[in-house]
């Protein structure tokens, strides 16, 4: 079982990814993959380098989901550089609205993270563009990333971050890989601050979605049907929220079969009076 937290990064350029790979001490995964993939030693953070453009970003997101066995409590991050009409070279923005230039479709990533970062709309385009008249950040991946990642995670676990790299006064032509890495590196503390919040949310989701470990131990000792397994998961959740988990095995160890385990736990709960003064 993949553990928690689970964070998945989708980044277009190697130069954008470099500071993150270094900071999180990620290493490249096996060679011969469709996209370069990196992971930290705990397999909590996985990062894929998608290349530029919407189709690559969508394909890489799907690929990373499969290759990293991303669980439902994974948080997904897209980070990269973007153009912007306002003079804010180097500023990190949190994206809270994405518009696809091609289709005019709109998406709304979640806004539940606590941050003082400036926020902006993002326009995702198909061709590089130096017309900065729109009041939006401009990139070439964001919308496609969102559309792919929302299939795997709730919007509260999707994060899009953009650092302004070009605009009317900062020409895109003079950008170099070194400058791009520096733009990300200069914002790395803010980025990791948000990532820590996402890690906590991912852990909370894990605890909410996955039944306590003890359920597996019980299922190994007695044979449960599929419907009994489901019943057991619910009963163990209810039981452990009011009795100490350490006493659960003690309680049921003398039961003969799955039916009597279920019946024993049900009986406890049926007779239980919540002590509201102690909850």
């Amino acid at each position: 079982m993949v553990g928690a937290p689970a964070i998945r990064w989708v980044v277009a350029l190697k130069s954008e990814a470099k500071p993150i790979i270094q900071k999180l001490q990620m290493l490249p995964m096996k060679k011969g993959m469709d996209f370069p993939i990196y992971s930290d030693k705990n397999r909590c953070h996985w990062l894929i380098i998608s290349g530029v453009g919407q189709s690559r970003s969508a394909a890489a997101t799907n690929y990373l989901h499969r290759e990293s066995d991303a669980p439902p409590w994974s948080a997904w991050i897209n980070i990269g550089i973007a153009g912007y009409g306002y003079d804010s070279y180097g500023v990190l923005y949190l994206v809270d609205k994405i518009v696809s230039e091609e289709t005019n479709f709109v998406a709304y990533p979640g806004v539940a993270l606590a941050t003082k970062l400036p926020r902006s709309e993002l326009l995702t385009v198909n061709k590089p563009r130096v017309d900065y008249s729109e009041p939006s950040l401009i990139d070439m991946e964001g919308y496609a990333f969102y559309e792919a990642a929302i299939k795997f995670a709730s919007r509260e676990l999707l994060l899009l971050l953009k650092v302004v790299s070009d605009g009317p006064k900062s020409k895109v032509k003079i950008l170099t890989p070194k400058k791009i890495s520096k733009l990300i590196l200069d914002n790395i503390e803010n980025i990791l601050g948000l990532v820590r919040q996402l890690e906590n949310l991912s852990k909370l989701e894990f605890d909410r979605v996955i039944p306590p470990d003890i359920c597996n131990q019980i299922k190994q000792k007695w044979h449960f049907t599929v419907s009994q397994k489901h019943q057991l998961n619910i009963l163990v959740r209810r039981w452990t929220s009011v009795f100490p988990e350490t006493k659960l095995f003690q309680k049921i160890k003398n039961q003969n079969n799955s039916k009597s385990v279920i019946s024993s736990l049900s009986k406890d709960l049926d007779e239980y009076e919540v002590d509201w003064g102690k909850t």
Partner: peptide, 12 residues
């Protein structure tokens, strides 16, 4: 499903 740890749901 939202709050599986909630004691309210452990009552009779």
């Amino acid at each position: 499903r939202l709050y599986p740890e909630e004691p309210l749901f452990s009552g009779p």
